[in-house]
Amino acid sequence: MSFSHIQELVSLAEERHSSIGDLMLDVEMAASGQCADEILERMSRQLDVMEQAVRKGTTESVVSKTGLTGGDGFRMQTYLNEGRTILPVNALRPLAYALAVSEVNASMGRIVATPTAGAAGILPGVLMYMVDTHGTRRETLVRGLLTAAALGLVIANSASISGAVGGCQAEIGSATAMAAGTLVEMQGGSPRQVAHAVGIALKNSLGLVCDPVGGLVEIPCILRNGLHALTAIAAADMALAGIRSIIPADEVIQVMHHIGQKMPSTLRETGLGGLASTPTGQRLREQVFGR
């Protein structure tokens, strides 16, 4: 058994009076034959890798393999420590953290694909923010990763999490939706509110094309991770405020898939269209790979 509809998750969770994360744990136990503690321990190790990437990219200037990008996680963190920000300092931490992880990724450092490497900054960004500013317990984060997994499974099975198939919306959009729903559940929201957070977050990513300069997971991937970490938190707060996604999450996921299918291949991770095709994008490509 796996998941392919958000509504299915909501109904099952309501029926059993359990969280979506606990539902995922049950399914994982049945499929793997492992006990709850083994699965939570494995998930905890994924969280360790996420945390290491956040800390690395905020405490040192991490530069990509190509040298095109780097140091922004550290730059942002330094700026936050100076305290002269427009938004409250803490509100910007998830952005710094997400940039940090994406930079570690671009340097061929170790990360956890959540759901993909291209979107690997968002979930660690918001989770480590919850630890650092809200004092969220580690146990809650590990369970939150199971919530995120359940939401991601739905999107992967009913649409796509591949930029080459569905554009950036399938990667950054999926990660934003997963993170938003996870935050709602971690903060005690209902399964329905989780679904609304997914719908709200994903709607705001529809149409996002995958147009990396030179085909590299750098420009604009790193910045999109940073900014979408903020979007995920805002979407979670909206859902917790009682705001509904009037188009149900499942329909938003379906339409994301349809939009992806209509995108020309130049805008689906081929490094040919969009930002990759701008004069600067082309120049940078040549700088890295030659003519």
Partner: peptide, 10 residues
Amino acid sequence: DIIGPVMVGP
């Protein structure tokens, strides 16, 4: 499949 794999980028 979703929270993983642990991998070197990108």
